[in-house]
Amino acid sequence: MKRRRALMRSALTMMPALILAGCGTSAPANVSGLRGVVGTDLVGARGATAADQRRIDRTVVGLCAASVWTKGECMRHGELRDG
């Protein structure tokens, strides 16, 4: 019984600490994940040519697929792009 009580007390003490540790903000260790989502197509694209626009669209597709942008934002890009 004492062991169970000690275990319960330990768990109740550690839970808030573990939750708070997971809620911190810190810089990412590296940017490879973000680079994989965004890609490098946007570098140098100005939107002045059809090739530039395709590069911009490829970047948007990555952002939309990774849910960085909302569905509404992605649809808005498509609407602005098409019309």
Rank of each mutant, 00 (worst) to 15 (best):
K2Y: 07
R3H: 06
R4M: 05
R4L: 11
R5W: 04
R5Y: 07
A6P: 00
A6T: 09
M8I: 10
S10P: 02
S10G: 04
A11Y: 10
T13M: 06
T13K: 09
T13C: 07
M14K: 11
M15E: 08
M15Q: 05
A17M: 08
I19F: 06
L20G: 07
G22D: 03
G22K: 06
G22C: 09
T25A: 13
T25H: 11
T25W: 12
S26Y: 10
A29L: 15
A29G: 09
V31W: 13
S32R: 14
G33Y: 13
G33I: 14
G33Q: 15
L34E: 12
L34R: 11
L34Y: 15
R35G: 11
G36P: 10
G36C: 10
V37K: 02
V37T: 13
V38N: 04
V38G: 01
G39A: 08
G39F: 00
T40A: 14
T40D: 15
L42A: 11
L42E: 03
G44W: 08
G44T: 05
G44Y: 09
R46G: 15
G47L: 05
G47A: 05
A48S: 13
A48V: 14
A48L: 13
A48F: 11
A48T: 12
A50S: 15
A50Q: 14
A51W: 14
A51L: 14
A51C: 11
A51F: 07
D52W: 03
R54M: 12
R54S: 14
R54P: 02
R54E: 15
R55G: 04
R55P: 03
I56V: 14
D57W: 01
R58K: 15
V60Q: 02
V60A: 03
V60C: 01
V61C: 06
V61M: 09
G62N: 02
L63S: 01
L63P: 02
C64S: 11
C64E: 09
A65L: 12
A66T: 03
A66H: 04
V68F: 05
V68T: 07
V68A: 09
W69D: 01
T70R: 00
E73K: 01
C74A: 06
C74G: 02
M75W: 00
M75H: 03
R76S: 06
R76V: 01
R76M: 03
H77I: 05
G78Y: 03
G78H: 06
G78M: 04
G78A: 10
E79I: 04
E79H: 05
E79P: 00
R81S: 05
D82Q: 10
G83R: 12
G83M: 11
G83D: 10
